[in-house]
Design a protein around this nucleic acid. Structure first.
Length: 407
RNA sequence: GGAGGGUUGCCCGAGCGGUCAAAGGGAGCAGACUGUAAAUCUGCCGGCUUAUGCCUACGGUGGUUCGAACCCACCACCCUCCA
């Protein structure tokens, strides 16, 4: 592919690009470029937010370039400075390796294995002596470090900044020096770190890397207010994520719970559909010609098929439609058998024992709110009991189903 | 080293002796509605089966008080300012 065409392709969905002319120049050199991206191996569960970046890396690979996948084992051993209030336990060597392994395993659902090299930055960072560190630190200034947005903000808001946090960007920059990479990519929150890489490479007499950032995807519970997206970025700890490894039904369901507005953001960042097609869908929904639900299903299926295949996506769609659109009984609910000492059991207690609700108090509430059905009959009395027998089909809310036999 | 401010439920945040299981918002849940697990509306949102009841909870430990998230002492952690 022509360098200009490659550039156009690579620029899609990218927020920052420093420096475009330089990228074009390197693409014109006709050699595979070295693309670097770093990952924190302590939380190895990949979700759709990570895939925005991985998709971009894959795009480079498809254009014939090589990806260096840096496992931040060294930085992980020091601990993430941003988690200030909750001091995270320092992971062991084994945990890091295990994390890196599962991370890579999931990443290869997107990346091309043949064009990916995995390296650990502990290989070189771990060998640096204190004077090496001081020399490296001498290449940057506090004033420049404080240009960083979150440092500036934390400083203004009187939130503490530890000294070692100032060293992080330098460590990451040094990775680039060691690897002599052409391009480093990361989320927009990484912009500063990536730019420090340029600076340090120049200081060390190297050609500064090209820096590219991809947007951060908001979590599935984000809202749109006055045209702006309100809500935290996708993360496992906030439980607003869709995991790459999750079951098809779960992925589809979570994606269907996106608000109609937010769906377009997901289209933009995750779909491979051409820009023009997305715009067409958007207009059709706005005009009332297309049910937003159907646009959402199309998106959800595209994503589910990417990780599980088209057949699974179809199956997930069918069961979703049956359960939530037609309100049928799901086909795959868990089956339980409970041995009773008495002749019957208080229903809220049973719901709690089956794990359908967190406590019998909640079970009682759910009955009062009309959310509990047994064999299709709504239970309205929170004192109600269920005699031995069954199997009973129990519904305790939209998504909590089970069958149970009482013995 | 000195002076001051702070630590509240899943998160943010109000409360500053009783009427506090603790305002408000977010998240979550249920119901209604719906072509969506969208939007909107209503309700719920510590636990204990039956409760104008009990237990647990407002950083930790003690204390004052008939009574403490609220007052006092000490401890821990965080922040700011002056050195």
């Amino acid at each position: 592919m022509k360098p200009e065409a490659q550039l156009a392709e690579l620029k899609r969905g990218v927020v920052d690009l420093h420096v475009e002319a330089d990228l074009l120049e390197r693409l014109s050199e006709g050699r595979p470029l070295k693309i670097k991206a770093g990952f924190d191996p302590t939380r190895p569960d990949l979700h759709l937010g990570h895939t925005v970046l991985l998709n971009k890396m894959r795009q480079f690979q498809d254009l014939g370039h090589d990806v260096v996948f840096i496992v931040g084992d060294f930085t992980a051993q020091i601990g993430d400075p941003s988690g200030r209030s909750s001091t995270r336990p320092v992971p062991t060597r084994e945990e890091i390796e295990e994390g890196a392994r599962t991370y890579a395993e999931q990443a290869f659902k997107i990346l091309d294995k043949k064009r990916t090299q995995i390296v650990y930055n502990g290989e070189w960072l771990g060998k640096m002596a204190f004077d090496d560190v001081i020399r490296l630190a001498g290449k940057y200034t506090l004033a420049r470090m404080m240009e960083r947005d979150d440092f500036k903000r934390r400083w203004a808001e009187h939130v503490s900044i530890s000294l070692h946090e100032l060293l992080y960007p330098l460590a990451q920059a040094y990775d680039s020096v060691v690897l002599e990479c052409d391009v480093e990519i990361g989320g927009t929150d990484q912009l500063f770190n990536l730019l420090v890489g340029r600076e340090i490479m120049r200081e060390m007499g190297q050609r500064p890397q090209i820096v590219m950032t991809t947007p951060l995807l908001e979590g599935i519970n984000a809202r749109i207010e006055n045209g702006k997206i309100v809500g935290a970025k996708m993360s496992k700890s906030l439980d607003n994520y869709v995991g790459v490894d999750e079951a098809p039904k779960e992925q589809l369901g979570k994606l269907m719970s996106l608000s109609d507005d937010l769906m377009w953001r997901y289209y933009e960042l995750l779909s491979n559909a051409p820009e023009a097609e997305v715009q067409r869908l958007k207009r059709a929904c706005a005009a009332g010609e297309l049910n937003p639900r159907d646009a959402k299903i199309a998106l959800a299926k595209e994503i589910v098929s990417r990780y599980h295949g088209a057949r699974e996506a179809d199956a997930a769609e069918a069961s979703w439609l049956a359960q939530f659109s037609k309100r049928e009984i799901p086909d795959d609910m868990p089956e339980h058998e409970v041995a009773l000492e008495e002749e019957d059991v208080w229903i809220p207690k049973l719901l709690s024992d089956l794990g359908l609700v967190k406590s019998s108090s909640e079970g009682r509430r759910r009955i009062q709110q009309g959310g509990v059905e047994i064999d299709g009959d709504r239970i309205s009395d929170p004192q109600a009991k269920l005699p031995k027998g069954g199997p009973y089909v129990i519904k305790a809310g939209k998504r909590a189903w089970a069958t149970v036999t009482l013995k």
